[in-house]
Design a binder for these strands. Structure first.
Lengths: 192, 192
DNA sequence: TCTTGAATTGAACGCATGTTCATATAATCG
DNA sequence: CGATTATATGAACATGCGTTCAATTCAAGA
């Protein structure tokens, strides 16, 4: 028997995850076969099932771990504006550091089992709520001015995450500059 | 022989397109089979090839037509700020009216042939350039204040298109209100 | 060295895929 | 009506899919 790695929360095995991540991001979950993953791992297809119960779990594990890591980021403290700045800057850094995971987490939601989907959806919602909480506290304190905290939170996240769609290493602007410009725009959105 | 519909720019046939659009948006291009499309059209799989040369063309046609329609929107005139307002409002309306097409146009880019991909990419770039041109003219005239017109254009498009990820009919806010709030945020971003 | 159990293979299962094509039906027109 | 053309069928093709499993190889401990 086998499956030494597959007992607890670590249900997939790091090498397989790493390969699956790259292939899913490049070609899409549905377009990547287990045989192709196996080939890139350097193993026969059957052996993958020592490291993951099935293909779906492979995808879910990638997303779940991504969201867990996102939510494990330190919660900013200080005044609302400082909190917001930290949130925005960390968001951009986190996302630029993990382009493939971010891509998958957006594109492959519909390939999740409905049970798995609602788990990821809840985690995503938690992240949005954190930003909204910052906005709310800032508005209550009169430090920020937003017409609708929920909409503003969604708009900011979309705007910040959007960096991933065009950023490429070695482009016209370095990460720090991009971060600065986006934070500047975010600050304007919240009227500060 | 057949293929009466398939000679010119209308290479797919409206009914097939309509069904394919819904299925691609719901399940993803790679996860939808020709047989499934045929079933929803009410026909056998083979008959689809009277209306489209292949599956890839079905996808490409949906995207191409979407981008053509997007670029066929009237170009706003007036002062830069008015132009920008018209652009933003029209963008939101256009995208909220076509959620499935917008979804596909974002999610299925990697399922395009590289040739088809570059065609769509160019059209998308044209749209971004239009917004950037408005921003540039506004900055030159001293009516707008943005740190970087290219980045601001990308940020605005991401922000505005983001509405599609959470908007549902019959939600808390109606479209007009959403449009107003987003335009307000967009105006702040450009410092006006 | 022999044993034991984990790691891996490779073939097999049943089914689905995009696409083609000879054949059949339906519609159009003289 | 008969002829012709458009529309559709349904079987077939070759290939690939996720997953299973008996058989094998490998790694370590006794």
């Amino acid at each position: 028997m086998a499956r030494t790695q597959g007992s607890h929360s670590n249900v997939t095995g790091p090498r397989v995850r790493e390969v699956a991540l790259r292939l899913f991001a490049r070609h899409g979950f549905a377009a990547v076969s287990m045989r192709r993953i196996a080939e890139d791992v350097g193993v026969q297809a059957g052996a993958l099932y020592l490291y993951t119960p099935d293909k779906q779990t492979l995808l879910f594990d990638l997303m779940k771990r991504h969201m867990d890591e996102l939510l494990a980021m330190p919660r900013p403290d200080g005044m609302a504006l400082e909190q917001l700045e930290a949130f925005c800057r960390r968001h951009i850094r986190f996302h630029l550091d993990r382009p493939d995971l971010v891509f998958i987490a957006y594109m492959e939601l519909r390939n999740l089992t409905s049970k798995n989907f609602s788990i990821i959806k809840r985690l995503r919602r938690q992240y949005e709520d954190r930003l909204e909480a910052i906005l709310k506290s800032g508005c209550d304190a009169g430090l920020l001015d937003t017409p609708d905290t929920k909409l503003t939170a969604m708009a900011l996240i979309a705007m910040l995450t959007g960096v991933n769609t065009w950023y490429r290493d070695g482009g016209r602007l370095n990460r720090r500059t991009i971060e600065d410009i986006y934070w500047d725009m975010a600050r304007r959105v919240v009227g500060a």
